[in-house]
């Protein structure tokens, strides 16, 4: 049986091969931090990292990630202290918070590849993540802050 690594731990893929990664996480492993929003890759609430790259887990069949390494919001950092998470707290970004795991995962992956993003870069990178409460202004500020913090770490 093939397997997949999630937050550093290996799990056998013991479900239908077409089950999206999202539902493997939520229903099989009961890791519910990754959210269901649209089921069609349109809203970004289900964003996780596959080998470090932000991906919409609701449209990614589990069979396609066999042998690969997945990071979810629960595994982004040891103590909730990833610079993006810290910036989210500093700017008090979440309102209902439901989309924020996806926002944070998308932002973390983006910043790993763009150390000095402009405002336009941030907007372009985050355009796939919907927030219905309307926290976009704070998301932009938090990402800019996190970028500064990450620059210091290097």
């Amino acid at each position: 049986m093939s397997s997949v690594t999630i937050n550093g731990k290996e799990y056998p893929i013991d479900v239908a091969p077409d089950m999206p990664l999202l539902w493997f996480l939520r229903d099989r492993l009961e890791l519910t931090g990754t959210k269901f929003g649209c089921g069609s890759g349109l809203c970004g609430a289900c964003t996780v990292h596959i080998d470090g790259t932000a991906t919409r887990s609701c449209v990614m069949p589990i069979s396609a990630v066999a042998g690969r390494s997945i990071t979810t919001i629960e595994g982004l950092s040891e103590n909730g202290d990833h610079p993006v998470q810290k910036a989210w707290l500093k700017h008090q970004v979440p309102q209902c918070g439901y989309c924020q795991a996806g926002q944070i995962m998308n932002a973390a992956s983006f910043l790993a590849n763009n150390k000095q993003p402009s405002e336009q870069d941030i907007e372009a990178a985050m355009q796939g993540n919907i927030c219905r409460c309307g926290t976009y202004q704070r998301i932009k500020l938090a990402i800019a802050d996190a970028a500064d913090e990450l620059a210091k770490e290097v």
Partner: peptide, 26 residues
């Protein structure tokens, strides 16, 4: 600061959709 933000940013804030009950069907 909101009382629940630190749970939100690590994915531990549970919503209605996150409920799991033993023996639950979907």
């Amino acid at each position: 600061p909101r009382h629940d933000q630190s749970m939100v940013v690590v994915g531990e804030r549970t919503y209605g959709v996150d409920t799991k009950v033993p023996g639950m069907r979907y």
